[in-house]
Design a protein around this nucleic acid. Sequence first.
DNA 1: CGACTGATTGATACGTCTCAAGGATAGTGG
DNA 2: CCACTATCCTTGAGACGTATCAATCAGTCG
Lengths: 245, 245
Amino acid sequence: MLDTMKSFRAETELTHSKRSLPWSVIAGGAAAAAQATNDDLVALEKIGKKVRFAKNETIFSEGDEAAFSYKVLSGAIRLCKYRADGRRQITDFVLPGDRCAFLHVDEHRFTAEAASDVVAVIYRQRQVEALGEQIPGMRKQLDNFLANRLAGVQDHLIMLGCQTAKERVVSFLLALADRTGTWDGDAVDLPMSRQDIADYLGLTIETVCRVLSGLKRARLVIVPSRCKIVITDIGRLRDLADCPD
Amino acid sequence: MLDTMKSFRAETELTHSKRSLPWSVIAGGAAAAAQATNDDLVALEKIGKKVRFAKNETIFSEGDEAAFSYKVLSGAIRLCKYRADGRRQITDFVLPGDRCAFLHVDEHRFTAEAASDVVAVIYRQRQVEALGEQIPGMRKQLDNFLANRLAGVQDHLIMLGCQTAKERVVSFLLALADRTGTWDGDAVDLPMSRQDIADYLGLTIETVCRVLSGLKRARLVIVPSRCKIVITDIGRLRDLADCPD
DNA sequence: CGACTGATTGATACGTCTCAAGGATAGTGG
DNA sequence: CCACTATCCTTGAGACGTATCAATCAGTCG
């Protein structure tokens, strides 16, 4: 039914070891499944192939037969749903180290597009499934993906349900920093457009911009370029994420 | 924040399911149990016990150790999350035939409260798990449950992300009618307060009321009592669910 | 009946959206 | 390296939708 499973905070420790290394290193870092042994992951990586997608390229569409699963190595995939009138809701960004479409379903329930240029590993779902049957640890890990995904969506839902524009943007930035393991003073990558962020947060692009400008004026962040942002006071930012003001 | 219940402790009548169970039928119609075979269900029902909860009674709290799973027979359970400032987001209503907390996790990620007086069946998670290992069909069914849950949350998320107040209320009513298998002209039960509906939809109670009044004025629904609603023109209502106007 | 709780309605404030204009940046070809 | 363009981002003014605050109404229970 669903596709993706990136996780909120798990399985992303790996971005420290930036991109020079493909899957071997990344596999070692996958923290999502406590039970996962290296053997499980090695088996998985053996059936993967490296591919690239250009920015805005459609990777799969809602309703397509689900034949492949993905792991992002660099860039970001956006998972979204289009409504009849053109409104779009992005349900998730798949960031480096994250996986998506690992849930076995007949057809994808979402459209996946490259939010930036993307390098990813793709796996045949049939083979992933087979691994799941053979290797008990793998099975458990796939379950974990699903559970993590559920937790992530629920956090997202709470954000949309009861946070203000400022809180949403701030939460988003903090979550990005968390997931990519950056700290106070480090630049966080924003591998997606303002419009993407807006559609993820349930806001308009103008509102996202205004909030960002406000944060700049308050000296909480610096935006050296479109696709980077430096958090200069993560403590005060954290406060903003939970207060309506 | 919301309080609080006259303390009717859950009277735990052990209804060993010797009698033919009406709820197995209900379960068949519910979202969770597409693949269910009767054998699987019988095994599950054997380990369940019937319990009651008074309206507003807390069934479990976020962070509690997850020891039991539940199936609602009548009434509704609300699953919610409280924020530090008291804001509340309801992530789901568990309606007759639905199950909750069937996900194996160490602790509950949400608070569950009785939105109305509730009759439910509870299962020891340990035993459910054991059944999952023994019966292959059960395993599949638990997986299905999780996948359906994920799909449901994502639909909810899309609603919060890009629908107007009117669309949300209308979608909610239609979903209720769908889930409970009622038709044009039938009364749909609303086993939750306006405040609950508001917190589910990410709106205020006043806005929910105003939308309902608008629907009444437009002769789309009739509200014979607080906790019932009759859909008089489901076709026109369906149109409203997808147009911003 | 009165008191209480929950639901409804009204007047107004506020936050976000919409529409419109102007910048900044990246890409292209001369 | 420079225009030239297209795209994306940012800012502003005003409109609109929903929240807030307050009053009233309707049902329920003692």
